[in-house]
């Protein structure tokens, strides 16, 4: 097992007939993703990597029921494409677009909540269960990062995840499912919303959180641990310990103002709830080894 996506999850692709989308769609299929249909308005009747293309998600879904949608749609069209997937009844949607307007993102998350659906992203590489399936764009062939195993990983950041996960693998572990929630101010899904699935996944022994300054997602994880929603070990690394207050560091969501959103505050909450927090990426592996056999 794994969470969010495995080899049985049927997937519809949106906007995958462009060169970048087509490239990663091919990799998804090679890695084991069960892609059943693709959607590009105006291209119904064509095939993409052997998969039928439809004008709309509704038309695709009617003939090839999908459990997840993967969007290779540019930022300015992301809202429309996500709403289309939700309206067709797709319960899991991944949008990787980097640069979705904030007010579109707010409506994306609001719509997902109203539908009881889960939208991951934007500004993410997506979700991967190494060796099983991927709804996203990960260089799964880099074995020192994407080795299959029993550690769930959740992250706000792409490159940093590679850095941290390489240390997880270096310590002898592997990844059950890696979820990139994305670095934007209002991501479609938040860390704590994946914890119930990781809790019940027999293949996940522990979860690594790759967080950073800004927002409250790390605090929400601490709350879930305290409330007993999540009982497996949690190890975290958080970037931005020394970031100056009031300066935006890269991600839209990465800003601390006053005492809110600081890494110090997040570490206090997480450690208070019983999680282990590494001060450097290279220490994540050894902390995991303390809590996982």
């Amino acid at each position: 097992m794994s969470i969010f996506v495995d080899g049985n999850t049927t997937i519809v692709l949106q906007g995958a007939t462009g060169s970048e989308g087509s490239f990663w769609a091919q990799h998804m299929i090679e890695m084991g993703a069960r892609v059943v249909a693709a959607v590009t308005p105006g291209k119904e009747g064509q095939k993409l990597h052997g998969v039928p293309v439809f004008h709309s998600v509704r038309r695709a879904h009617a003939q090839h029921a999908a459990k997840a949608a993967m969007l290779f749609v540019p930022p300015r069209f992301a809202r429309d494409a996500v709403l289309e997937a939700l309206d067709a009844g797709i319960p899991r949607v991944v949008t990787i677009a980097d640069g979705i307007p904030l007010h579109d993102q707010i409506q994306i998350r609001a719509a997902a909540r109203a539908e009881g659906a889960q939208v991951v992203g934007g500004n993410t590489s997506g979700v991967i269960s190494p060796g099983k399936s991927m709804v996203g764009m990960f260089p799964y062939w880099i074995e020192r990062v994407y080795r299959p195993g029993s550690i769930g990983v959740m992250t706000r950041s792409g490159s940093l995840t590679n850095e941290v996960t390489a240390w997880v693998v270096d310590a002898g572990f592997g990844v059950s499912t890696l979820v990139g929630v994305g670095g934007d101010l209002v991501p479609g899904s938040r860390f704590a919303e994946f914890l119930p699935a990781f809790e019940t996944d027999p293949e996940t022994q522990a979860v690594v959180i790759v967080g950073e300054l800004g927002g409250t997602m790390e605090e929400e994880v601490a709350e879930a641990i305290r409330d007993g929603v999540f009982t497996k070990p949690v190890v975290a690394f958080l970037g931005g310990r020394t970031a100056p207050s009031g300066k935006r560091m890269g991600h839209a969501g990465a800003i601390a103002t006053g005492s809110s959103g600081t890494v110090a505050g997040k570490v206090k909450e997480l450690e208070g709830a019983g999680a282990l927090v590494a001060d450097r990426p290279c220490r994540v592996g050894e902390l995991l080894a303390r809590v996982v056999q």
């Binding site: 995840t161 850095e163 790759v210 950073e212 931005g240 310990r241 020394t242 990426p281």
Partner: peptide, 15 residues
């Protein structure tokens, strides 16, 4: 490259 990684490198330089 990468906002999270750059922020982390910033931390490591300070450390």
């Amino acid at each position: 490259a990468g906002a999270g990684l750059t922020t982390t490198v910033y931390d490591l330089v300070q450390f």
